[in-house]
Simulated assay, not measured.
Amino acid sequence: MENVTPLGGDVYEIDTRMAGFSGITAGYLILGDRPCLVETGTATSAPVVRDALAALGVGAGDLATVVVTHIHLDHAGGVGDIARMFPVAEIVVHEKGARHLVDPSRLMASAKMVWGDKLDVLFGSLAPTEAARIKALGDTGAIDLGNGRTLASHYSPGHAKHHVGLIDSLTGDLYVGDAAGVYMPETGDLRPATPPPDFDLETALGSISLFEALGPQRLLFSHYGPVDDVAGVLERSAEELRVWVDLTRQARSAGLDLDHAVAMVRDRTKERYAALRGADETAEHFELLSGAPSNVAGILHWLDRVDMPH
């Protein structure tokens, strides 16, 4: 299938075709003794993911595990649908996200506030998953991939309080979710992902340091794809966070409202990203997902908490 790319080590990247776009959100299948899907993509992507798994020989009764790095809808919106399509799979998520998979009503209501009419087109609706099928992770955990191979989970908040990174004992692949930002393979650019309400600079930088300490061989970004330059990209990830926070803080000190703060930060960061200088279609789609408005709003939300007069 043209949306499935073998990455070696029995790992396959699946383009989930989010909202019909290519190259925006990836899921990954680890095809061991106990096949494991990392990230489901959105609800509307579930049939795309099911067909990709079928093409790789993984039928309804074959998928052992589904794990999501966090419960944002571009990563986990398909969990309920995928759980139905693969009835024996265990669903693995951090304990701070588990209840939202069982009862998605609050999550969907807040997503509706953020996305409005775009919600259905971009994400669809997260269907509930039976609590009995969910394994909730603490700060660390392990998923059995069969034959002594494990996927170890490490709590990595900062982008979201229910975020985990996952490292494969066989390949050294680290599934970074959104904790290291958004990688644009066309240009090698990396942009931060700092949406409200959970963004916290020190926590986010701590998670990037944790990722470095795990010594991964390769980073697998949900947005988007594999990266071999582990040290360079994680360093860039931390640098981007600091730049965006500094610029947003300046805008806030200057008394700018959200729209003007966004315009200023967007303008001052534009030169950092080759993709945004060209009229690149993929860049527009990334802007949708981790755009300046959401990033600046998340940083402002955090600044309001930390800069309050004590």
Rank of each mutant, 00 (worst) to 15 (best):
T150D: 04
S294I: 09
P128D: 09
E95F: 02
E39L: 08
A136Y: 05
H163R: 06
K112V: 00
N3Q: 14
L119P: 00
S105Q: 12
E271L: 07
V38G: 01
H100D: 14
A142I: 04
L288R: 10
G59E: 13
R266E: 14
P128L: 09
N147G: 12
H310T: 11
A26M: 13
M308A: 15
M85H: 05
L7D: 01
G138H: 08
E239Q: 13
N295G: 03
D259E: 15
L37T: 05
D173G: 03
K112Q: 15
L101K: 03
E281T: 12
L219R: 05
V102G: 01
S22W: 08
M18D: 03
A261D: 00
H70M: 03
Y224M: 11
T129C: 11
K118F: 11
G57W: 05
A213D: 15
R149F: 06
I134P: 00
E240Y: 01
H154V: 09
E287N: 13
S22L: 11
R191L: 15
A111D: 05
A76C: 08
L300Y: 00
R17D: 03
W244T: 00
I143F: 07
G9W: 02
D259K: 10
I24N: 02
L122K: 01
W115A: 07
A76M: 06
E287V: 05
S294A: 12
D81W: 06
T69D: 12
G291Y: 05
L101A: 03
P87V: 06
T69V: 14
D280G: 10
L56Q: 12
R34Q: 12
G177C: 06
V306C: 09
T40D: 08
F211H: 07
V102M: 03
L247M: 10
R272K: 08
A204R: 11
A60H: 07
A89V: 05
K135L: 08
N295P: 00
E90T: 14
R17M: 13
H223M: 08
M85L: 15
V164S: 13
T40W: 05
L166R: 04
S207F: 00
A283D: 10
M85I: 10
S105N: 07
I30D: 00
V121D: 12
A254W: 06
G165S: 15
V58R: 01
V262A: 04
P87L: 09
I24V: 15
